[in-house]
Amino acid sequence: MANFKLIYRILSLLDKYLDYEDPDWSRLSADHFLVTEKRFISIMLMLYQAGYIDGIEPIHLGGNRFDLKYINPTITLKGLEYLEDNDLMHKAYRLLKGVKDITPGV
């Protein structure tokens, strides 16, 4: 579950950065999201390979180790669709949870 939360936060940041001429790229980091560098790079690679983000270049360091080069990181249309679908699911979950909380025996 923590991975999907991280994915949502990364994509949300890139969505927000669509409005900025000169975004603060230091926020696109493991430190900013309070995760390990290995987890952050793995998630970023998954997002890139799945087509949710673009503008990064994976650098193979040998074995299964990678680093990232930022060219012009951006969210793709597929990434925007993920955010929209995920937001609708959260709203539905909160609504159903509210109904359950006020309905006895459910």
Rank of each mutant, 00 (worst) to 15 (best):
L45H: 02
I75M: 02
K69N: 10
A30K: 01
N3F: 13
G79W: 11
L28K: 00
N3M: 13
E81S: 09
Y48C: 09
A30S: 08
M89G: 10
V99D: 00
I7Y: 03
L18C: 07
A92G: 14
M89A: 07
E21H: 15
D15M: 03
E81G: 15
N86Y: 11
K5I: 06
I7E: 04
R9Q: 14
G62Q: 13
T36N: 07
L68C: 04
I41V: 05
E37S: 13
F33D: 06
G55W: 08
F33Q: 00
R65P: 02
L96I: 15
K97W: 15
I71V: 13
L88H: 07
K69S: 04
D87C: 04
R27A: 09
R27K: 10
R39D: 08
L77Y: 10
Y70Q: 03
R65H: 12
E84V: 07
Y20W: 11
P73L: 06
I71K: 08
I59C: 10
L6V: 01
E37V: 07
Y8S: 05
I59M: 05
N72Q: 09
V106K: 15
A2I: 12
I7A: 01
D19P: 11
H60N: 13
Y8L: 05
L96Q: 11
Y52F: 12
K16A: 08
F40N: 00
N64C: 09
A2Q: 12
F66G: 05
V35Y: 05
I53K: 00
A2F: 06
R65A: 10
I56P: 01
G79L: 11
I53M: 03
I41W: 03
Q49K: 09
Y20F: 13
D22N: 12
P104I: 06
E37L: 14
M1H: 03
N86L: 08
K91N: 03
T74L: 15
A50K: 12
P73K: 15
F33I: 07
L11P: 02
M44S: 05
L77M: 07
F40R: 00
K100Q: 14
F4C: 05
R27M: 07
M89I: 15
A50C: 07
L88G: 06
P104V: 03
F33E: 00
E21Y: 10
T74S: 06
N86R: 14
G62V: 10
D67V: 03
L47H: 15
K69A: 02
I10P: 06
T103C: 01
T103Y: 07
H90W: 08
E84F: 07
L96R: 12
I71P: 06
L96Y: 13
Y93M: 11
A50G: 01
V35P: 02
I53T: 00
I43Q: 05
D31P: 01
T74A: 12
A2E: 09
I10Q: 02
H32V: 01
S42Y: 08
L13A: 01
F66W: 15
L96H: 15
T76A: 06
S12K: 09
T74M: 05
L83Y: 06
I41C: 02
Y93E: 12
G51N: 03
L61F: 01
L18V: 14
F40I: 00
T76D: 04
K16Q: 12
D22F: 15
L6G: 08
G51I: 02
L96P: 12
L34T: 04
I75H: 04
L6H: 11
S42L: 13
L45N: 04
I7Q: 04
L18R: 14
G79S: 01
M1C: 14
